[in-house]
Simulated assay, not measured.
Amino acid sequence: MKRYLITAFVIVFLVNSVQAQDGELLFQQCKACHTIGQGKLLGPDLLDISKTRDAAWVKNFIKSSQSMIKGGDPDAIALFEEFNKLMMIDYPLPDAEIDAIVKYIDSFSSPDTEDNVKASAVDSLAAVEKENYLARIDTDENEARGKALFEGERKFKNGGASCISCHHVNVGEGVQGGLLAKDLTQSFSQIGGLAGIKGIIEFPPYPAMKDAYTEASLTEDESVQLQVFLMRADKENSMEASSVTGFLQQGIIGMVVLLVIISLVWFRRKKRSVNFHIIQRQR
Rank of each mutant, 00 (worst) to 15 (best):
Q280H: 13
Q66I: 01
P207G: 11
I137G: 02
A195R: 13
S120Q: 00
I137T: 04
P44E: 08
A195W: 00
E153Q: 15
N275L: 12
T219A: 08
V18E: 02
K270C: 03
V260I: 15
E173N: 14
M239Q: 11
K118M: 04
G71T: 04
I262W: 02
L264N: 02
V224M: 02
V128D: 07
Q227K: 06
F27S: 10
M231H: 15
T113M: 04
F229M: 11
G172F: 03
A144H: 03
Y206S: 12
K182H: 13
F203C: 02
E202H: 01
N142D: 03
A119T: 06
T139Y: 12
S109D: 15
C163E: 04
G199Y: 01
I262S: 11
F229I: 10
G71E: 14
G178Q: 12
R272Y: 12
V122F: 06
L25S: 14
P92A: 04
S242P: 02
K51Q: 14
A56D: 09
S238M: 07
F83W: 14
D211V: 14
D54G: 03
V12F: 10
A121R: 05
L47R: 14
V244E: 15
T185K: 07
D112V: 13
K63M: 09
L86C: 01
P44R: 06
K271T: 13
K157N: 01
R145C: 02
R154H: 08
A161I: 13
K51E: 13
I164R: 03
I200W: 00
L46N: 10
G254Y: 01
G43I: 06
Q21Y: 12
A121N: 08
S124C: 05
N142Q: 03
L125P: 02
A119I: 00
S187L: 11
K51T: 12
A148L: 08
L264I: 13
N84D: 08
E236N: 03
I77Y: 06
T113L: 11
I98F: 08
E220G: 00
Q282F: 05
S243I: 09
N158E: 06
K31N: 10
I197G: 08
E129L: 07
G178Y: 04
W266C: 14
Y91A: 15
T214I: 13
L14V: 15
Q227G: 08
N16L: 14
F267Q: 01
L5C: 10
N170R: 11
D211Q: 14
I278C: 03
L248H: 11
N142F: 06
S242M: 12
A127D: 12
Q249L: 14
V175Y: 01
E173H: 05
T139P: 15
H168I: 00
M68V: 10
K271W: 05
F61L: 09
C30D: 00
M1R: 09
H167K: 06
K157Y: 00
Q186L: 14
G43E: 08
R145V: 07
T219G: 06
I164P: 07
L79P: 01
R136K: 10
I6Q: 00
F247V: 12
F150N: 04
A135G: 07
A78V: 07
M87S: 12
Q21H: 08
A8V: 06
K270E: 15
